[in-house]
Design a protein around this nucleic acid. Structure first.
Length: 220
DNA sequence: ATCCCGAGGG
DNA sequence: CCCTCTGGAT
């Protein structure tokens, strides 16, 4: 299954746009209950105006909110991002700490966001379990736990540490391109033969033509 | 109506 | 554990 995923998405990577760990932290905080496409729509202008923690720390929520309003949950996010920026300036010299406990202690930063920053910005071993990783990991039979934290523990066991970061992104790509929450495209999914959910779908009628989709995971 | 790279409060 | 925060896409 892991090999199949790797073959399908050889170029899986983070799709949020950022220049620094701090910018990835902000982009990830913004991505809650939103899509990365929406986040990428506002961050270029946002990071041009406010490039680092010091710039964000000087803002009021009323100044920040209009820039991120289209993303949703904007009141909470404005407050949290500014407060996080202030803590980074006061206690971490304006830098993002490479430490899980320090990250989750920041307002608006939970387990998922902390793991994204650790693995994607710093290359440290971590698996962020977001809605896609949770859903797809369970459908593919890589995990069975009923909470993101349990699924994270299972994935840590089943996946070699050197593959944690890529596999995280492959699961997300698969979730976005094929294994949707609603109406997953099992009938067009090359992984269906190894997938409990795909086999179930095939049995219950949706004739699987198994036409290996060509390069859906490759970057142009 | 349901979901999107969630987190915090009660 | 359940609720709420939020706009946009499907």
């Amino acid at each position: 299954m892991l090999d199949g995923l790797a073959a399908l998405y050889p170029d899986a990577r983070c799709e949020l746009h950022y220049e620094t760990p701090f910018q990835l932290l902000v982009a990830t905080m913004l991505s809650a209950q939103s899509t990365d496409a929406k986040v990428n729509q506002v961050t270029p202008e946002l990071f041009r105006r406010y490039p680092d923690a010091r710039a964000f720390a000087a803002l009021t929520p009323e100044e920040l909110a209009p820039h991120i309003q289209s993303i949703g949950l904007y009141r909470t996010k404005s407050k949290n991002i500014i407060e996080t920026a202030r803590i980074l300036v006061e206690r971490f010299g304006g830098e993002v700490p490479r430490d899980f406990d320090a990250l989750v202690a920041l307002p608006g930063v939970g387990r998922k966001t902390a793991n994204v920053v650790l693995s994607t910005a710093f290359g440290l071993p971590a698996i962020a379990v977001d809605t896609h990783v949770f859903r797809v990991g369970r459908r593919l039979g890589l995990a069975s736990g009923d909470t993101p934290e349990r699924v994270e523990a299972e994935l840590r066991q089943r996946i070699p540490m050197s593959e944690w970061a890529v596999t995280h992104h492959r699961l997300i790509w698969h979730g976005r391109r094929m294994c949707h929450a609603r109406a997953p495209k099992c009938d067009r999914c090359p992984l269906w033969v190894d997938c409990p959910h795909g086999l179930k779908a095939a049995r219950s009628g949706q004739k699987n033509q198994d036409p290996p989709v060509d390069n859906i995971g490759r970057v142009d």
